[in-house]
Design a protein around this nucleic acid. Structure first.
Length: 818
RNA sequence: GCUCGUGUGGCGGAAUCGGCAGACGCAUCGGACUUAAAAUCCGACGGAUUAAACUCCGUGCCGGUUCGAGUCCGGCCACGAGCACCA
């Protein structure tokens, strides 16, 4: 009887025989399979973990049997907010709870029986790991890819603390006290991911990733081509001067330079540093009040508001670069400082937002584009069309005008072609304790000083008060904060923040390859040989963040000559989500959780694994159901019965059996094809079909032919990746003394798949009339004769005449009748 | 609002390049075995009209292309996801 005891037996044997070990002598056949590592939460291993790990493990096992040298490591994404919040609530230190959770989760993961390379195990909260986060930070800093600037963070004035975006409710209030969250400026560290925006976009098509995920990244990067146009600015009739006393040139970004003659005003973002310069004394009070108001409202609150357009006149005027017309300059929060130049040229006739604003503020609206169709359209007309009232450009199409105006403005020094991105640089500072300390000190004499690599790791102090009171917990640890400047030896302060945990996960796939390295994050030659990851599996929720950051860091490391390839993950699959039986996300509060531990001890891990493989489409997921558990449980015991019967039966010589050969080879072909595509449910279905046949074939006899016996062994080999412990046990029962995973994966025989007779459908005008068994290679003419001889032939035609015969070999014959 | 995805029996889900819709399984019903039940095995199982179907209808809805459409095209509807004043 298959049970969890069988699991334990084989898990021990696999450990003893080092089944999961990677043999570096077979590098040419290497296959790096990786599932996204997990956060070691205090809750038990849940169905989602199993769904993430078990099916890809089956895939990896099959690939091993197909001759690949598989490397499948496992680790823990151990830094982060939950442990810290737990600590705030219970007083248990994040390090203590995390290490304990890692211990528990490791034990649980082992019950899964994954072919994991435990030797490569890593946890990101280990100083041996995060010292290399710090090392990475220093390299990025050295290469100008890490920099510090002032940026707004979510701030709760009541709790006096910084909040992560997830801690801000939909209505813009704090999740703890429901006070309205505001923005506060802090000087923070950024990684310059925007330097790679173009490459991140360009390398996307060649990746074997889900199209949807590529689309999400494309949108996230948000490349848009347009032009900058330069406007001079006047205040009280005199040109505005910049800091160097030169006339200020106000640059705007637009994708619709063809509407340049329709500009009736300009808008500058309230957060723009240029704003004070462009404000008249008369308007200063109201502009400052407006800017202040904008700062207070969080981004989310801005969205929640009914989006009524608000804004204030600055008192300044912009000069149209071509017509020299004076255009009022407004400030309004519908313009964002961080996109484009933070200033827009407003064309109310051809932009919905400008139209609304002009309407509210009673600003002029000047149409300069008419529909090419000649049909009148209501304003705002935002599509491409034909220019009117546009000086020398009148009559051109929008496309032509964009080219002409960009060229002409550039010639005059009044503009140029520009590409803008939605992607922002990656803010990596977190005002939190449980993370990687930033390896930088601030010295009064030397300024911002990176730690020398020899000073790493800069360890996270254990004894820290991490209660939330508005300051980074590390800032309150005087022993941590006070240090010496590595340059001048004078007193200096450390950075009180820690790094975003996405830094940890942006390069862990390389550390796995060389996880014990004490000299470097990894050995370049080893990583070049083992990477990129050949198959990466994890949730789609990481489409934009983790997967983009990891791609960026890979490119940055490549440019530092640390590795020689462009992309970290060549192929990617997202598993679906397993929901509760009620269709809701599994949660303790909903009372719809399923405990893998219990099911595994009750049924055995392979039953649980098979259920996940068989009852769900892997990339879709779905609602949990116990029903399928019974189905696969039955499947397993039927195989067990069959194997026992086969073993105890008298063997007789093989007799030619074309049907059996066809079925076996059909199963090999389709089970393999489907499993390679992560379509495990149909793989299992094909195995069930073969079992059904073998069971019937052996039902009424106490002897078994040699070829039927061989077919049963083939079924076991095909089943092995999907029910590994059980298949090993059956393999042993059939007298084998070596692991079933040492067997070669069967290859189908094309010849066996050719049948002598095939069933085809006979249709009249596409409607099925009957089905016929016919010789596979029948001549079309003979088939037509045969059909004409059918008794019902005249009835089918019902007085119509056949005008055409369409024969699709092996499938159907369709008679077109009129 | 924009973009993308999905929609197939009572249920989970199959269906190659446009070629027999519903594989495989669950549930249900009937039968065998049993004193009985469970387990197991055999059979039926989209709907309708039926004596029976090789009859008619049927892949969210409406239309189109085609000898032939779950699959391709156009237009809707519903659900889900991503982005969200991005100039």
């Amino acid at each position: 009887m298959y049970s969890v005891e069988v699991d334990r037996k084989w898990q021990q044997k696999w450990a003893d025989m080092k089944l999961a070990a990677f043999n570096p002598k077979r590098l040419d056949k290497k296959l790096y399979v990786l599932e996204m590592f997990s956060y070691p939460s205090s809750a038990k291993l849940h169905v989602g973990h199993w769904f993430n790990y078990a099916p890809p493990d089956s895939w990896a096992r099959m690939q091993k049997m197909r001759g690949y040298e598989v490397f499948q490591p496992i680790g823990f994404d151990a830094f982060g907010l939950p442990a810290e919040n737990y600590a705030i609530k219970t007083g248990i230190h994040p390090e203590d709870s995390t290490l304990k959770n890692i211990d528990t989760m490791t034990k649980q993961l082992k019950t899964l029986g994954g072919m994991f390379n435990w030797d490569a195990l890593l946890a990101t909260c280990d100083p041996d790991y995060y010292r290399w986060n710090q090392w990475l930070f220093l390299q990025l800093y050295k290469h100008g890819l890490a920099y510090r600037k002032n940026a707004p963070v979510n701030w709760c004035p009541d709790c006096q603390t910084v909040l992560a975006n997830e801690q801000v409710m939909d209505d813009g209030t704090c999740e703890r006290c429901h006070t309205e969250v505001t923005k506060k400026s802090l000087t923070q560290w950024f990684f310059k991911i925007t330097a790679y925006a173009d490459e991140l976009l360009e390398k996307l098509p060649a990746l074997d990733w889900p199209e949807k995920t590529k689309k999400i990244q494309t949108n996230w990067i948000g490349r848009s081509e347009g032009a900058d146009a330069v406007f001079a600015v006047e205040l009280n009739g005199a040109p505005v001067l910049d800091e160097e006393k030169n006339p200020l040139a106000l640059s705007v970004f637009t994708t619709r330079i063809d509407t340049l003659y329709g500009v009736t005003y300009l808008v500058i973002a309230p957060e723009s540093p240029l704003l004070p310069l462009l404000t008249s004394e008369a308007q200063r009070a109201s502009v400052e009040a407006y800017a202040e108001k904008t700062k207070k409202a969080s981004e989310i609150a801005r969205l929640a508001a009914t989006r009524e357009k608000t804004g204030v006149f600055t008192g300044a005027y912009a000069i149209h670069p071509l017509t020299q017309e004076k255009l009022p300059l407004w400030t309004a929060d519908y313009v964002i400082a961080s996109y484009g130049t933070g200033v827009v040229m407003a064309v109310p006739a051809h932009d919905t937002r400008d139209f609304e604003f002009a309407h509210t503020m009673n600003l002029p609206i000047k149409p300069v584009i008419e529909p090419s169709s000649g049909v009148d359209e209501p304003l705002p007309f935002v599509e491409y069309g034909t220019l009117k009232d546009s000086g020398p450009y009148t009559g051109l199409s929008s496309e032509e005008a964009i080219a002409a105006l960009t060229r002409d403005l550039e010639a005059e020094g009044l503009g140029r072609k520009v590409v803008s991105y939605r992607l922002r640089d990656w803010l990596v500072s977190r005002q939190r304790y449980w993370g990687t300390p930033i390896p930088i000190v601030y010295c009064d004499h030397c300024g911002t000083v990176p730690l020398p690599e020899s000073a790493l790791p800069l360890t996270l102090p254990y004894d820290v008060a991490f209660s939330p009171d508005g300051v980074s917990p590390l800032a309150k640890s005087e022993t941590f904060m006070n240090t010496e400047c590595p340059v001048c030896g004078g007193p200096a302060r450390r950075d009180p923040d820690t790094l975003d945990t996405f830094v940890c996960s942006s390069w862990y796939q390389f550390r796995f390859v060389d996880s014990q390295n004490k000299e470097a994050p990894f050995d370049t030659a080893k990583v070049n040989a083992m990477c990129p990851v050949d198959m990466y599996v994890g949730g789609q929720e990481h489409a934009a963040m983790h997967l983009l950051y990891a791609r960026f860091i890979t490119k940055a490391l490549r440019d530092m000559k640390m590795l020689d390839f462009d992309e970290p993950f060549q192929a990617l699959v997202h598993q679906g989500m397993i929901l509760g039986s009620d269709g809701q996300k599994m949660s303790k509060s909903a009372g719809n959780t399923v405990s893998p531990d219990e099911l595994v001890s009750q049924y055995g891990g392979d039953i649980f694994r098979l259920h996940l493989l068989f009852s769900f489409a892997y990339t879709e997921g779905g609602n949990w159901t116990d029903d399928g558990l019974l189905a696969v449980s039955r499947f397993i015991s039927r195989i067990e019965t069959l194997v026992q019967k086969a073993v105890s039966s008298r063997k007789t010589a093989a007799v030619p059996d074309k049907d059996l050969a066809y079925r076996v080879n059909y199963t090999i072909l389709h089970a393999t094809e489907d499993a390679l595509k992560f379509q495990f449910n149909t793989t299992v279905a094909r195995l069930m079909e073969l079992l059904n046949h073998l069971q019937k074939a052996t039902a009424n006899s106490d002897s078994i032919t040699e070829n039927t016996y061989e077919a049963i062994l083939t079924l076991l080999v095909l089943l092995a990746p999907f029910a590994p412990h059980f298949a090993e046990e059956m393999w042993e029962v059939t007298g084998h003394t070596t692991s079933i995973f040492a067997e070669a994966w069967p290859v189908h025989d094309e010849k066996a798949l050719i049948r002598d007779e095939v069933e085809i459908a006979v249709q009249i005008n596409g409607q099925i009339k009957t089905r016929l068994m016919i010789p596979r290679d029948i001549e079309e003419a003979d088939l037509i004769e045969q059909i004409k001889e059918q008794d019902a032939y005249a009835n089918w035609l019902a007085g119509r005449q056949p005008v055409k015969w369409i024969f699709v070999r092996g499938r159907l014959l369709n008679i077109v009748a009129k």
